[in-house]
Simulated scan of single mutants.
Amino acid sequence: MAQSLAALCIGFILDFILGDPHSLWHPVQGIGSLITGTEKVLRKVFPDKKRSLQIAGLLLVIFVVSVSVLFAGLLLWIAERIHPALGFGLSCILCWQMLAAKSLKTESMKVYTALEKEGLEAGRRAVSMIVGRDTKSLSEEGVIKAAVETVAENTSDGVTAPLFYMMLAGPLGGVFYKAINTMDSMIGYRNEKYRWLGTCAARLDDIANFIPARISALFMTAAAFVLGFDGKSAWKIYRRDRHNHKSPNAAQTEAVMAGALQVQLAGDAWYFGELYKKPTIGDPIRSVRREDIRAACRLEYGAVILQFLVMVAVKAALIFLI
């Protein structure tokens, strides 16, 4: 347990310093290729009918999660057998690659920089790289909201949730979560193509994120108080609007973010040419502005650091007691 905690601490620090270097291969790329390949095989085998596609989706989830965790476990086992130091080093690297605190900040700040230096069209292109919605017709306000919402939601999906699972089960816990979350991001849509094939992946992601999303919201609220945002409003909007989303988890951190920044987020959005009617989150006390993207990143970092410190303290205490 102590070695697993040390690897996670090193991985956490590496993520804050280095982020996700684009020159390095990332495990999520492998998981994504596995999902794509498995989907192609299953679509050839199973008829294009509701029940058949749901069964295919279940098999895809079982196969992708199992292969991802077993392959990562095998690599760690081999590395450990070669030399304990190699096994520990690989654990550190896996923990680092399961987290995305710096890359979330970097990619969202690209939207801020594009709006500042090149204008709306550049902002639309930049935000299209981090959201799934259609961005071609977004106003500047829409671009900013999309970036802020992405930071809020992915604080949980990209950082605090994998951190939670790695605290429970080491680097393999992170791989387990990333396999589920990557499937949801690739096939967990309610459009014609994935409505039935992606059902299982989407539901499993909802379950996997249920506790982390709520933990993330609480730490984000605490960070709002610590960093001088409107903590009282963050808590108020969280209590009121945390269920204003079809996903049971997405609005948890978005509600805190909206309250802390005193803006209104969410609302109707276009995905793949189809308009999705969505409730709003927060009160329009003021209009969103470009600086809100920077503020959202500060709140993300604050929440992540607070969660990390508390969880490390709890796990260290458990190691000491055991």
Rank of each mutant, 00 (worst) to 15 (best):
10 I>N: 00
12 F>G: 10
13 I>E: 10
18 L>D: 02
27 P>D: 03
28 V>K: 01
29 Q>T: 11
32 G>C: 03
35 I>P: 00
44 K>C: 05
47 P>L: 05
48 D>A: 10
48 D>T: 07
50 K>H: 02
51 R>H: 07
52 S>R: 05
53 L>I: 01
53 L>S: 14
56 A>Q: 04
57 G>N: 12
58 L>P: 07
62 I>S: 11
63 F>K: 03
63 F>R: 02
68 S>A: 14
72 A>K: 01
74 L>T: 05
78 I>M: 01
82 I>A: 00
89 G>F: 08
89 G>H: 09
91 S>N: 06
91 S>I: 00
101 A>P: 02
101 A>R: 10
102 K>G: 02
106 T>Q: 08
110 K>Q: 15
110 K>D: 10
110 K>S: 07
116 E>C: 03
117 K>F: 06
119 G>R: 10
136 K>C: 03
143 V>C: 09
143 V>Q: 05
144 I>V: 15
145 K>E: 10
150 T>D: 09
151 V>A: 01
151 V>E: 00
152 A>M: 12
152 A>E: 13
155 T>L: 09
155 T>G: 14
161 A>I: 09
161 A>V: 06
163 L>C: 01
166 M>F: 07
174 G>T: 07
175 V>A: 05
178 K>G: 06
183 M>S: 05
184 D>G: 06
184 D>P: 02
188 G>D: 13
188 G>L: 07
189 Y>L: 05
192 E>N: 12
193 K>Q: 12
196 W>I: 02
199 T>H: 14
202 A>C: 09
205 D>A: 10
210 F>A: 15
212 P>Y: 08
218 L>C: 13
219 F>S: 12
222 A>S: 13
225 F>P: 07
226 V>F: 10
227 L>Q: 15
229 F>R: 09
233 S>G: 01
235 W>F: 15
241 D>L: 13
246 K>Q: 12
251 A>Y: 13
252 Q>M: 12
253 T>H: 08
254 E>C: 11
255 A>F: 05
257 M>C: 04
259 G>W: 10
259 G>P: 05
263 V>Y: 12
269 A>L: 11
270 W>I: 07
276 Y>Q: 15
281 I>Y: 13
283 D>Y: 15
284 P>M: 09
286 R>S: 10
289 R>C: 10
290 R>D: 04
292 D>Q: 08
295 A>W: 04
295 A>N: 11
298 R>G: 08
299 L>F: 08
312 V>R: 04
313 A>S: 15
318 L>A: 14
319 I>M: 11
320 F>R: 14
